[in-house]
């Protein structure tokens, strides 16, 4: 079909937008991560001086080095922050999976006329502010907070628990915030599962529990994998939750980046942290995309 020039430009517009505002910034981050901290505006050196011509460009490239990366590799703070991010994201993903699966399963087995309402109830919190939902937990988890008040008053504990400003609070925050991302893909796979498969399994001699592990669980695997990626990937780079709920010893790489940038004003180092965080994320992101592609081809 013939296309006019105008419609071509129109279609290319978002493409150009993303080139300028998404791809180009990454190249800049990469460049600055190879620069050095300096007392100047902006606070790094070298700056590309095009007025000096070719010599300027050469001087610019000569001044770039991997110093920031060496620094990151040598300072255990950063390595620990990366590892700790992986650990926190991994554990939270597992907890989210356990809770999310049982809710998704219950949703998929709920009476048909109830399902749309229940699904909407799961999605609704997602539309309300993330910040507010994290904030809501502060009042609950504080030492003098509502959880401790409740547990003390029924005599379950004698002394208030310290949850706020610990990794436990971060786990709770991540699980709470990302739960819908786990429930929805799992629900989607469970919902379209043919119920006669379970009857067939029963007919062939499986108990209900065996049928669950031999039929339902394998069939919901695509949903489980998608849900885990959707929780794990953003959780690694999470900033708000560790900052508000975590303590001073909660190390997460997103928070480290923020502190380097805003508190220490070390832009080159913050950029290097960002590049390494990206590299850390590339593996799960590529795996996720592969899996999604496989799904698309499969259906």
């Amino acid at each position: 079909m013939t296309r006019t020039l105008g419609s071509r430009i129109l279609v290319a517009l978002p493409y150009l937008w993303l080139l300028v505002l998404f791809l180009a910034p990454f190249l800049i981050v990469l460049k600055i991560s190879l620069s050095d901290l300096a007392v100047s505006r902006p606070p790094y050196t070298p700056h590309l001086d095009l007025t000096a011509g070719w010599a300027g460009i050469k001087a610019f490239f000569a001044a770039l080095d991997f110093e920031n990366y060496t620094f990151l590799a040598e300072d255990s703070l950063y390595i620990n922050a990366y590892l700790s991010s992986l650990k926190i994201a991994g554990i939270s993903t597992l907890i989210t999976l356990l809770i999310g699966y049982s809710i998704a399963y219950a949703l998929a087995r709920a009476p048909r006329r109830w399902r749309p309402t229940l699904v909407m109830l799961v999605i609704l919190p997602f539309w309300t502010s993330f910040l507010i939902r994290v904030y809501a937990w502060i009042g609950i988890l504080k030492t003098e907070g509502l959880l401790n008040q409740a547990l003390l008053s029924i005599g379950l504990i004698a002394e208030p628990l310290t949850i706020m400003n610990t990794n436990t609070a971060v786990y709770i925050g991540i699980v709470y915030s990302y739960l819908p991302f786990m429930i929805l893909p799992i629900y989607a796979t469970l919902e379209k599962m043919d119920e006669s498969l379970l009857e067939a399994a029963a007919d062939l001699g499986s108990s209900r529990l065996a049928a669950f592990f031999l039929v339902t669980l394998p069939l919901s695997m695509p949903g489980i994998v998608a849900g885990c990626f959707l929780v794990f990937i953003p959780a690694i780079g999470e900033f708000v939750i560790p900052d508000l709920l975590g303590g001073s010893n909660t190390l997460m790489i997103g928070k480290t980046l923020w502190v380097e940038f805003f508190n220490n004003r070390d832009w080159p180092l913050a950029s290097a942290v960002a590049i390494l965080l990206l590299l850390l994320l590339i593996v799960p992101i590529v795996l996720f995309q592969r899996q999604q592609m496989k799904q698309e081809i499969g259906t």
């Binding site: 505002l21 180009a24 990454f26 800049i28 953003p234 900033f239 997103g254 950029s271 960002a274 965080l277």
Partner: peptide, 23 residues
Amino acid sequence: MIYAPLVMPEVITGLSLLLLFIS
């Protein structure tokens, strides 16, 4: 480029855009 920002940590998107605006 369409899908990357969906999974990109906000700190990275924010930082890279800021550095673009400055440069």
